[in-house]
Design a protein around this nucleic acid. Structure first.
Length: 445
RNA sequence: GCGGAUGUAGCUUAGCUGGUUAAAGCGCCGCCCUGUCACGGCGGAGAUCGAGGGUUCAAAUCCCUUCGUCCGCGCCA
């Protein structure tokens, strides 16, 4: 491994010679002296090629933005007049002694940090991901994942990998990608790890899974993707859905404080603010109460709707923000018919389920709740919906051998990231979004 | 899939009640520049105005078709 000093650590090397490597962020050519802003994963610093180092000046003159370079340089403290207070390393600079081009860069399609339209942003994804803004978004996403794992593991959850190739549609809702499986057979891409999660509850009691799921929906909205990352968890020996909600509250609370500790720079870069988290429980109400509230407050005739419209979700989040100082709100008790077959019906409120949606800053980020754990009840529910139990033999087998009362949730990573950072479109929070007309590049018709 | 908006240099946009060589900022190329930090100065290249058809003496501008995009909706995380 070659000797290389991180740009973020240069203050520890003042008045010494170091080797740094990174990308040329900007070049400012003054003729006889040339400035290069050099960026690596730890920071950015100004380098200057002075006339007394002829070769360095010659190479600096040829270098362009995004060239990968290595430089031998002396770390100098800048004279007071030349200090730039707006930059992290603005009080020092590198006197470039030797410069080496590791890789040239073609002419950029546009400036790295330029504001571009979403379509242009995605058309040039390998390049636009290098921008300060995108690096900040996906650093935050990384820390969200980190917080998710850390919290669940510390609460006794075991991580597992759910299969992505499945034999049928877990939720029975259609919209599933079909693929050719070896010869003469068909398989599908998983729309959810749900059934495997429940099987794994029988094994470890508490499990979680982070993985991509696939939805063959012909939507074109700012909150949908055809492939997204689902943050799933499932655990046994619960009383009812409120136990699941309690764990999720603690998860979100932990996640927000983790982001506060690790991502303050990124939030500042993106001009985003951390969510409002209430001190004890999150506000919650039944779907019918929510619709009644909206009807009472806005005059809209919506009390008999089976679900919330996106506009209602935005309204309720606004309400929770003002009334409870919370960016989160739970909506519970969706009708049995609106939920998948495995959802637990509330014995005390027939026709409605012990399930919930968690709304966050205007969108649904989670669906969760208690599941049916009784084998015969599950069988009955499958048949009621016209689903063939023969397609669920593995799943049903788990329930034949003693399955505790259990529940869990599925949370959309990209939606969570988007709303955490107040972005306008979920695709901005997706590295390589799959959508109706795009798999990396645009699809041809 | 439906509804609305939109498509002009590499990027972001102006022009669009029709009228000579389609404009700007950034980027790019050339020359100049020893202290800039989105460096600056001078000069230059770069656009059959998404595509196809129509109306007209004349279309970036009006009409039709089509493709793409963005926003909203259904569905959902």
């Amino acid at each position: 491994m070659q000797d290389r000093t991180n740009i973020g650590d240069l203050h520890d090397h003042i008045d010494t010679e170091v080797t740094v490597a990174g990308y040329v962020d900007v070049r400012r050519d003054h003729g006889k002296l040339i400035f290069l802003d050099i960026r690596d994963r730890t920071g950015i610093v100004q380098g200057v090629a002075l006339p007394n180092h002829e070769e360095a000046v010659a190479i600096a003159g040829e270098v362009r933005s995004e060239f990968a370079i290595r430089a031998k340089a002396k770390v100098n403290v800048r004279p007071e007049k030349m200090v730039n207070k707006d930059q992290p390393n603005g009080d020092i600079e590198l006197e470039l002694l030797e410069l080496q081009v590791l890789a040239r860069a073609e002419e950029l399609p546009f400036e790295k940090d330029a504001e571009v339209n979403l379509d242009t942003l995605l058309d040039n994804r390998p390049f636009t991901l290098r921008s300060e803004r995108m690096r900040a978004i996906f650093k935050v996403q990384h820390e969200i994942l980190q917080a998710y794992r850390t919290f669940l593991i510390s609460n006794g959850f075991v991580e597992f990998e759910a299969p992505k190739i499945v034999g049928g549609d877990a939720e029975g809702g259609g919209n599933i990608f079909r693929l050719e499986y070896l010869k003469d057979k068909w398989a599908y891409l998983a729309t959810s790890p749900q059934l495997y999660k429940q099987i794994m509850v029988g094994v470890y009691e508490r499990v979680f899974s982070i993985g991509n799921v696939f939805r063959a929906e012909l939507h074109s909205t700012s909150r949908h993707l055809n492939e997204y990352t689902s943050l799933d968890a499932e655990f046994g020996f619960i009383e009812d859905h409120t136990d699941v909600m309690e764990v999720q509250v603690e998860l979100m609370r932990n996640m927000v404080s983790h982001l506060k500790e690790t991502c303050s720079t990124e939030f500042a870069t993106l001009n985003a603010s951390l969510p409002l988290v209430p001190v004890d429980e999150f506000p919650h109400m039944k779907l019918r109460e929510a619709l009644q509230l909206i009807a009472d407050e806005t005059g809209e005739d919506c009390v008999n709707e089976p679900d919330l419209a996106p506009e209602h979700e935005r309204w309720l989040c606004e309400y929770a923000n003002k009334k409870y100082a919370s960016d989160f709100i739970f909506i519970t008790h969706y009708p049995v018919a609106k939920r998948p077959f495995y959802t637990y019906e509330d014995e005390g409120d027939k026709g409605y389920t012990k399930s919930y949606d968690l709304l966050f800053r205007g969108v649904e980020i989670t669906t969760g709740g208690q599941r049916i754990h009784d084998h015969d009840m599950l069988l009955k529910r499958l048949e009621e919906r016209g689903l063939d139990p023969d397609n669920f033999t593995f799943y049903l087998m788990a329930f034949k051998y003693g399955m505790p009362p259990h529940g869990g949730w599925g949370m959309g990573l990209e939606r969570l990231t988007e709303k955490m950072l107040d972005l306008d479109n979920v695709k901005e929070a997706t590295l390589f979004p799959r959508e109706i007309n795009r798999i990396d590049t645009k699809l041809n018709n």
